[in-house]
Amino acid sequence: MTTEDVLLTADADGVRTVTLNRPHAYNSLTVELKERLLASLREASADPAVRAVVLTGSGKAFCAGQDLKEHVGLLQAGDPAPLRTVQDHYNPIVRTLVEMPKPVIAAVNGPAAGAGAAFAYAADLRIAASSANFLMAFANVGLGPDSGASWTLQRLVGYGRAAELMLLARTVGAEEAQSLGLVTEVVPDEELAGRAQALAAKLASGPTISYAKIKQVLTVAAEGTLEDALAAEDAAQTVLGSTADHREAVEAFVAKRKPDFQGK
């Protein structure tokens, strides 16, 4: 039994905020925190009352990645858990973030390294505090990328820049991250939580069923051919064209009023 709640959640305006809560350890990822995070994200994904998700950290860091103290201790004890954590924790967490049928915003409140940075890359939008930075630190500890970073990072900044950031393990500050296309927006530290919540609430009031299809089609298009993309777009439009949200949007446009989307 731990003396801290390593993960916090809060709901407001259709938005679930998930906060990594090990501030004394820069929100580094223990087995307990990884398991709690995965369960929380899966719950948010399945809950129709949750229409957008914000992922953030407490204290001065977003997430420093793997908790190396726990990692080394388990290795020295001969525990096989560290060798399974990619399969058991990191891969499922990133799949859940990427496949979440609703928008995910990473509110990056400070340093994000390793798997922590990868979690931010897996979100749909990234709002960074001015004090935030990103570090692909895997090479520094003799490892390769995990948590989907090899897939997400180069889709954000391109192969060449992704290779540079991983091979050189170079820290990227918030302003440079925005110029590279790594983050959507940079705001003063004290404005981050409010800005992320406002953006998430705006998305939560929108056509969330449409957002889910947009995410699916973008993933198909990123991986496939033009024909794959055209087929995915056609399938999505066929479904969305018969939704209540589409009818509501059209009727609201004709009536010159604001639509009331229900995610159906």
Rank of each mutant, 00 (worst) to 15 (best):
131 S>N: 13
98 V>N: 02
115 A>N: 14
102 K>S: 06
97 L>F: 09
120 A>M: 10
115 A>K: 14
111 P>N: 03
102 K>D: 07
98 V>Q: 11
125 L>T: 13
116 G>E: 14
110 G>F: 04
101 P>G: 13
114 G>M: 08
109 N>K: 06
118 A>H: 05
108 V>C: 01
128 A>C: 13
102 K>A: 01
114 G>C: 02
126 R>P: 09
112 A>Q: 07
106 A>Q: 03
133 N>H: 00
126 R>N: 13
122 A>K: 08
115 A>L: 13
109 N>F: 00
112 A>M: 07
132 A>C: 10
100 M>L: 11
129 A>W: 01
111 P>M: 00
100 M>Q: 14
126 R>S: 14
101 P>T: 14
124 D>R: 09
125 L>I: 09
129 A>M: 00
126 R>V: 15
130 S>M: 15
108 V>H: 01
106 A>E: 02
97 L>D: 09
118 A>S: 15
108 V>I: 07
110 G>Y: 01
108 V>Q: 02
100 M>F: 11
121 Y>A: 08
121 Y>S: 01
105 I>T: 12
100 M>I: 06
117 A>L: 12
95 R>P: 05
109 N>I: 08
104 V>D: 07
98 V>E: 12
105 I>R: 04
97 L>T: 10
122 A>E: 04
131 S>R: 13
119 F>N: 08
112 A>S: 04
130 S>W: 14
107 A>S: 10
132 A>G: 05
118 A>V: 09
116 G>Q: 15
110 G>Q: 04
101 P>I: 12
96 T>E: 11
111 P>Q: 03
123 A>G: 07
128 A>K: 00
133 N>L: 00
128 A>G: 04
121 Y>C: 12
131 S>I: 02
99 E>N: 13
99 E>C: 03
120 A>F: 11
130 S>D: 15
119 F>A: 11
111 P>Y: 01
109 N>R: 11
116 G>I: 14
110 G>H: 03
131 S>P: 11
124 D>P: 06
132 A>I: 05
103 P>V: 02
119 F>L: 14
100 M>D: 04
110 G>L: 02
114 G>N: 12
116 G>D: 09
97 L>I: 14
127 I>Q: 05
131 S>Y: 03
121 Y>L: 12
122 A>S: 13
99 E>G: 08
107 A>P: 12
108 V>G: 02
103 P>Y: 05
100 M>E: 10
127 I>E: 04
130 S>F: 15
99 E>Y: 04
99 E>Q: 14
113 A>M: 09
106 A>V: 01
129 A>G: 14
127 I>S: 06
109 N>V: 11
128 A>F: 11
98 V>F: 00
